[in-house]
Design a binder for these strands. Structure first.
Lengths: 196, 196
DNA sequence: AACAAAATAGACAATCCTGTCTATTTTGTT
DNA sequence: AACAAAATAGACAGGATTGTCTATTTTGTT
């Protein structure tokens, strides 16, 4: 096997650096408010380099969201993995991970939620890319819930997804990490209820 | 008593029409993406009329969010009022109201969540105005929860707030009203747990 | 060392943005 | 009918926006 079916991607160093800078600025200030000139100046990259790698700013945003998606999922899986073998503890590790994230110095809300808000049109590629991430996280929750032996794993995972999104939103608007604890305690109650 | 301490507000018809149009366009397309020229053309109002009533676009946005806040709270209170006298039913009426909202043709997510996302800086007046609404809704939930005799009303209200925000977010990104039912069922379980 | 690919600077177009200003017309009230 | 307040059209300034183009330089590979 020489190359995978998707994205051979020569992995240009410039392209990677550009995406990393874009990710940082978009997350800090917003996708729409950060112009490409600002972005290019910060990255120290020429404009044509951007447009040789991406057809448009929107395409860059979609790529950045894909990268963020991979990173967030990897971080989540790592957090779950270090939680040991107890299915309950593995599930609740998700909420501990949230708490750590909320307390980080550069926490500025959720890049996917921001994308959904800034591109409210469900047909927009950026909106859809952000939505795919939400679906992936929901699938992870469903697996964790099923492993914990909950009766209606899909329903419970959906409920937990609401708690996760609500907690992120609240942490951002209040500047406090307390919502992680609220969500964790609620999740524990719901899991107990679904396994009792 | 001649006039209240805040906002005598001659209630100019032009001002009201401008705000109503702004509310509609901002909700549909976003606060930043809708320019004042677009807005003025849609409202059929001259630019100087806007700047005679508002110092800046940001101030207009804050005013629109204040109006939306009043409307949403009134709608919520009406929904609760029509639910009768059972404290449980009154609380769960909030989630029924969500379901109706999600199913409405022009549902495009939450204007307050969108404001928090588009103005991520917590010091920004728009961010703060949206946050005040979230606090007000949380206070309403806390009162409903307390009336239902829940043991830790503040904690439960916080958990319900997470469910509400999560449900709105999910309804927007999935285009489905199912999250209202999920949130309602979860809320019912939590309430039962807190009163048993 | 030679050659091709990638990246560069920088100008440029065309458009959109918020906000200001002026001179005129409409509106509402007495 | 008269007069003051409100609203109007429209030009304008000063920037910022995305995206294109060209001519040159750097880079990486054989």
């Amino acid at each position: 096997m020489s190359s995978p079916a998707t994205a051979p991607e020569p992995v240009s160093a410039k392209r990677a650096h550009l995406m990393a800078t874009a990710q940082r600025l978009f997350y800090r200030d917003g996708y729409r408010v950060v112009g490409i000139d600002t972005l290019l100046a910060e990255a120290g990259v020429a404009k044509m380099t951007l447009y040789n790698h991406f057809a448009s700013k929107d395409e860059l945003i979609v790529a950045v969201i894909g990268k963020l998606d991979a990173e967030v999922r990897a971080a989540l899986e790592a957090a779950v993995a270090t939680a040991g073998n107890s299915p309950t503890r593995r599930l609740l590790a998700v909420f501990d991970w949230l708490a750590v994230w909320f307390k980080s110095a550069d926490f500025k809300g959720c890049g996917f939620i921001r994308a959904l808000s800034e591109f409210p049109d469900p047909e927009h590629p950026v909106h859809q890319a952000a939505w795919r991430h939400k679906q992936a996280v929901n699938a992870m929750l469903q697996e964790l819930v099923a492993n914990a032996g909950a009766r209606q794993p899909t329903e419970l995972a959906n409920a937990l997804s609401l708690l996760v999104d609500g907690a992120i939103l609240t942490a951002h608007s209040t500047g406090s990490a307390a919502s992680a604890a609220t969500a964790k305690a609620t999740a524990a109650s719901l899991l107990k209820l679904a396994t009792a």
